[in-house]
Amino acid sequence: MITLTIDNREITAKEGATLLQVCLDHDIYIPHLCYLEGMEHAAASCRLCFVEIEGVAGPVTSCTTIVKEGMVVKTDTEVVRHLQRASLQLLLSVHHVDCAHCPANRKCALQDMAKFLKVGLKPKYLEQHLKEPEIDQGHPYLDYYPNRCVLCGRCVLVCKNSHDRPFLTFAKRGLDTVISFYEEDRAEMPCDECLACVEICPVSALMKRKVG
């Protein structure tokens, strides 16, 4: 066990643990989207879980930081909050904000973070950009909503972990990046039964298709 200081609190943690996990375990909330407990290599793609560490230049992502003895961490500095807000606002600028009609309403990671960071759901300065079409129904069992998706990649990861290989993947690049599906024989797809990706999605971008 090692001891470190987070926001002036002395905390003991397991060696080898990530800073983000230690914070979450001690009820210190750090906004995050792409991190999953127990993941081997953090994707570090959502760029939200920034913290500042004494002696380290600039904010760093806590999901990729392994705790060290004597580490002094601040999770609530002005720089950290600025970056977190900037990242969230960017995500919201390509998000179809329509909470009233969204199944994720009230259990949405974006809503939670917006409330925590005191950010409006419709960013003032950034122009909204939405993808076409609103729903991708290429998958035999699932509907994908690209304008809800935050591309955290959790679905790709759980899919890979639940089966011996992933059925989901990132496709295209840049702003056009979406979650897509490998073309498969319907009969061989475990998706109808599994739905791990639907459950893990923080924003209801993947939904089981309603039949009929």
Partner: peptide, 21 residues
């Protein structure tokens, strides 16, 4: 750069798009 962004991280994927706009 906006076209060549891999789309993985938020700042590069969406931020460069806004800069370009």
């Amino acid at each position: 750069t906006q076209k060549e962004s891999c789309g993985k991280c938020t700042f590069c994927r969406i931020g460069t798009h806004h800069l370009l706009r």
